[in-house]
Design a protein around this nucleic acid. Structure first.
Lengths: 354, 354
DNA sequence: ATGAAAGCGCTAACAT
DNA sequence: ATGTTAGCGCTTTCAT
């Protein structure tokens, strides 16, 4: 692990910003009193407080982050690693999630620091290099981790370093996990989708999902199974598990239509659902009239495609809020582990389901 | 403008990270020498350097950001304001752009700090409050500004404060602008799209774009006009200007088909192009066979929709790189304004254009 | 080529 | 309720 060198660049030329000392002088108090006025206003006599605030106002004083960070050993920054975009895929969940997280963090006085896979200054750019750098340099207070589903080493690694973090996603295969997490109940979503189709009179409802090694996919699949069996409907021959691509969804649905003649499809993603729409279009069938289709993620694709794709929508705003709250708790009292939270998605009904 | 209070939260409990002093002691040199080893290795005798690096390595030393920031008056953070998501819209450009920017920044030793519209701690949460806060607290070194097209006050405001920033987007209506900017030549994109359709034998090619007050829209429109006139094709009755929604694109294309019988559409956005696809589907027409359609942005929608939407793709990776380079130049030599850069988009051909 | 001294702006701990 | 002291970890300046 090498050390990041400071880039040789002159400091930015600002008009010298006012400091605590400037405010103190102007208000006729000590620097500490100004600090208290900012951070513990209750400690000041109302009169003094007023005077200090006035000085702050007229001088346009804003505390210097670096100095505060140095002193308090906190940065008020939350690190988030951006996972690579999958082009050709419908999901826009990350985008919405980042937005929600920025908003939720702001409320808590945090900003979001984005980083990507490889750290620039490390000799050994393993998958955790980015985390390691930010952690050791105390650039962030904590992390939000998003891709726990791959059975990847993030959670274990972070726990080992005693790095504060919360996860969006269950620690599927890590029983030792002791971190706070928030997740969306995918099974509840696909179950609702299936129920919705059953209500509409469908009985032969097919599932197109991901390969078996995807916990996320199996979870979503279980919602379909549960709803079908709950209504004593058979699922045999109605499920297929493929890659998350449009082409796979297209092929799987074509085979399925020929072999099992379903009247409706529930898919593990909008991407797969788009594949189904391709098949229907190729056969001159109309989504929503001839065959019903439901996707997952309520991506922009679902929103703008003809005739409108019914889809399961994750409550990412709530997820972000819950994560930030968990993070605040974690940083306040590291010993107490916040309870995990499983949030319910909602079904956005559009013409593709009839 | 009020002052952000520090949230009352104990400092995170890490194992005390090694400091310069620790490394110095272990290597048997002064702290300053360690600092030099990190930032100016050329100053050290090779032998000393080696010894110090060894100590750094074994101790796992990484410079403390806050301390370095305080001392150097730089944060190595670039601020980016996330503009609100437009749901029901196809564009995913921001997502791709953020990714590209994270990546490009990393190469330059920066991280991206995301913030949203309103600052939390200000009494007067104007549109610039977020910028103001970050600027005054020296939380970021510079900004990347993305929505210059609205004739919004960002550029002027930032210039007035002498805040370092670069823009993605031309300063359309601000002649006084003196900041570096990078933009994509929208006209070149729509021109290429139109040429592509003309090559395919189309002569009645319609334009569906945005209202006249959108510089961006007028730029893209001009590419269509230029190509048409270049081939002595008439544009009269073939243009419409509407809002950027699927519904608008749908209506506009329906009217256009009835009134002017175009055989192809070039659109200012994928969202509008999706509207055209709606109209075609409703009339039993096939995109690419009966009527050609081209969108703009190469959004995920364009990539996954049936039968595949031809679209103009912005080189956002290059844009991000150019922006970061401009930023580096700006911070290194504020007096020299980097030349503006206009990058060429590319046309991604898919079945919707035949 | 290396070291010593000073200080960036802030807040924790203590004293008054 | 307010002030004083000290120091967070680093780099700049200057001396050696």
């Amino acid at each position: 692990m090498a050390v990041p060198a400071r880039s040789t660049r002159p400091a930015p030329r600002h008009v010298a910003a006012p400091t605590l000392a400037d405010v103190a002088e102007r208000a006729g108090v000590s620097r500490q009193t100004v600090s208290n006025a900012v951070n513990n206003p209750d400690l000041l006599r109302p009169e003094t407080l007023m005077r200090v605030q006035e000085a702050i106002e007229t001088l346009g004083y804003v505390p210097n982050r670096a100095a505060r960070n140095l002193r308090t050993r906190a940065s008020n920054l939350i690190g988030l690693r951006l996972s690579p975009i999958w082009e050709g895929t419908a999901s826009t969940a990350m985008d919405r999630f980042v937005h929600s997280l920025v908003w939720a963090s702001r409320e808590a006085g945090y900003h979001l620091l984005l980083f990507s896979d490889d750290a620039p200054f490390t000799r050994d750019p393993g998958p955790m290099a980015g985390y390691d750098d930010l952690l050791r340099s105390t650039a962030v207070d904590a992390f939000v981790v998003t891709d726990t589903f791959l059975g990847n080493p993030q959670a274990a690694w972070l726990r080992e370093r005693r790095a504060p973090f919360v996860a969006f996603g269950r620690p599927w295969d890590d029983d030792a996990a002791r971190h706070p997490w928030v997740d969306v109940d995918g099974a509840a979503g696909t179950s609702a989708a299936t129920e919705h189709l059953i209500e509409r009179g469908h009985t032969r409802i097919a599932w197109i999902g991901w390969r078996k090694d995807s916990h996320l996919g199996e979870d979503r699949r279980s919602g379909w199974t549960r709803a079908m069996h709950g209504h004593h409907l058979s699922t045999s021959g109605l499920a297929s598990r493929v890659e998350d691509t449009v082409a796979s969804g297209r092929e799987a649905s074509a085979v399925m239509l020929d072999d099992a003649a379903p009247t409706a499809f529930v898919c593990a993603s909008d991407t797969l659902a788009m594949g189904v729409l391709h098949t229907l279009a190729e056969r001159g069938l109309h989504a929503g009239q001839d065959v019903a289709v439901v996707g997952f993620d309520d991506s922009q694709v679902a929103q703008v495609v003809h005739p409108g794709l019914t889809s399961v929508r994750q409550p990412l705003e709530e997820v972000a809020l819950a994560l930030v709250r968990a993070l605040e708790d974690l940083l306040a009292t590291p010993s107490v582990v916040a309870p995990a939270q499983l949030l319910a998605p909602s079904l956005v009904v559009r013409p593709s389901s009839g």
